[in-house]
């Protein structure tokens, strides 16, 4: 499995310039807007999406067939993709947090009269919310790719996302129509209290379900 992760990371090495540009843009964004939430979400999103492009590399080299000739089980092959996907959003999120802290401290040093304070708990929850979004996309996209291939899988994913968004809009419309009031403050305090746990458990559940579906598809697939 280590070999497969290494192969994917070496394939992704071509993205290093993109990542550097991304970091520069995020830094400018943080300095310009003084927003402490932008970097973790943007970086986790982009790194999380880049990790999925390893499927495109595999597809263009028709690597799946060759990988199945290597001394690996189908379970290990699927697991390696999830390790990379989950690892990418964790690294992206952490890197975003670190970049935010460094840049905020840098701004505070050069501008001591107007200090920016970081609410670390809120920063972590915001980052986790961003990671949750990417985890949702990854959890839908990976089984879709195993089922339909990298190109078709992406189309199927957009259709699924569209359905999810429609469902959310439908629920909120239903709430408004029947007079349910949702207090933003209540949600915020609820998230501050239990958010980290709820989001983490939901992410874990999403990945577990997605992994089982992917493995089921891949274990039955002929190449």
């Amino acid at each position: 499995m280590k070999g497969l992760i290494k192969k994917d990371l070496l394939n992704l090495a071509s993205y290093k310039t993109t990542l550097l540009i991304l970091i520069i843009f995020c830094s400018i964004g943080i300095i310009g807007t003084e927003s402490v939430t932008i970097a973790p979400i943007v970086i986790a999103t982009i790194i999380g999406m880049i990790a999925l492009s390893t499927f495109n590399y595999d597809e263009s080299s028709k690597a799946d067939k060759f990988i199945l000739t290597l001394p690996l089980t189908r379970k290990e092959i699927v697991t390696s993709k999830y390790v990379l996907a989950i690892g990418s959003i964790i690294i992206g999120g952490l890197f975003g947090i670190i970049l935010t802290i460094i840049l905020t401290n840098f701004i505070n040093i050069i501008r001591p009269n107007d200090l920016i304070t970081i609410d670390y708990k809120s920063l972590c929850i915001t980052t986790l919310c961003g990671m949750f979004g990417i985890a949702l996309i990854q959890s839908i996209q990976i089984p879709s790719i195993y089922k339909w291939g990298a190109e078709k899988g992406r189309i199927q994913m957009f259709i699924l996302l569209f359905i999810i968004i429609l469902a959310i809009l439908g629920i909120s419309f239903f709430f408004t129509k029947f007079g349910f009031q949702i207090e933003e403050q209540q949600i915020e305090s609820f998230l501050n209290q239990f958010g980290v746990w709820i989001i983490s458990i939901l992410m874990l559940l999403m990945y577990l379900i997605s992994y089982h579906i992917s493995y089921k598809i891949f274990s039955k697939k002929d190449y």
């Binding site: 280590k2 290494k6 192969k7 080299s61």
Partner: peptide, 20 residues
């Protein structure tokens, strides 16, 4: 018609294959 990746070098192939 199939190999590990077209976007790698022969040197990288060594570093990957030795893990398998």
């Amino acid at each position: 018609d199939s190999f590990l990746s077209e976007y790698l070098t022969a040197k990288a192939i060594n570093s990957i294959m030795k893990k398998f």
